[in-house]
Design a protein around this nucleic acid. Sequence first.
DNA 1: CATATGTCCTGAGAGC
DNA 2: TGCTCTCAGGACATAT
Length: 286
Amino acid sequence: MPELPEVETMVRGIRPHIEGRRIREVRVPPCRCRPLLIEPRPKTIARRVAGATVDRIWRRAKRVVLSLSTGDAFAVEPRMTGLMLVDEAPDDSHLRLEWVFEPSPQHEVNSLWFWDRRGLGTIRLLTPEEQAVVFGPDRLGTDALEMTETEWREVLSSTRTAIKVALLNQKRVAGIGNLYASEILHLSRISPEVPAQELSRKQISRLANAVPAILNEAIRYEGSTLGDGTYRNALNETGGYQNAHMVYAREGELCPTCRRGTIVRIVQAQRSTFFCRVCQRKPRSK
DNA sequence: CATATGTCCTGAGAGC
DNA sequence: TGCTCTCAGGACATAT
């Protein structure tokens, strides 16, 4: 489930090991699992990365981006279970891609790995033109950490979709996923079921503040490792933010905010939403 | 155009 | 104990 905080943690974790280094080769490790989406073909990748260095490692929405000296960039989308690792992996059987770097006296590690148990992740080597499309405003909205209150009002005013579902639409706002959407709405004291365009100015103001509050705190804790234990940072260590979750996966528990309601789970757009009906009350529709 | 639903994938856990 | 079934949710494709 890597969302913005987890992907940001990956970027920060691999950056000191990888940034500025020359790629020796990119390898697809032997893996008995079904092949992951890697584009273009490994042979073409090998040709295009020859002699290139990784100039910059950054994040666009929920993707890890490795920008190369050639102008090309790897865009890595971990999706559900993908990880970027520089040390050990949870297991060796789901390693999907290895970037091997020229040895350097300042660095202990010479490989970067993409590990993905379920294999829903994708890795693409993009030309500058493709980057403009894939990272562009037609595909991805403003990063959730860069949104202004005015922008929030704009992107929410045009849809009747429930606010929780609207927050997951990456064209509207980029980086929020299922887990943090519930946490953000809880801190904002907004019902996940309210149509986005019916939010009051005050509610949008609270939302605009809650988004960076939640996401930055989650980054500080290096993300959330849920019950399945999949998510890990670049060193294969678990995150810590799951202990700070107020509502996510806390169905049946007393609401930690109002201490009156009980956390409930509902399904919206085939995804779980957790919230407290007492402090996230839905206004009576007009 | 906006909105809703289906699809991919693996392994954990439930239930019998 | 071992089988079958359901579920988790990233992004995108397709349908309405």
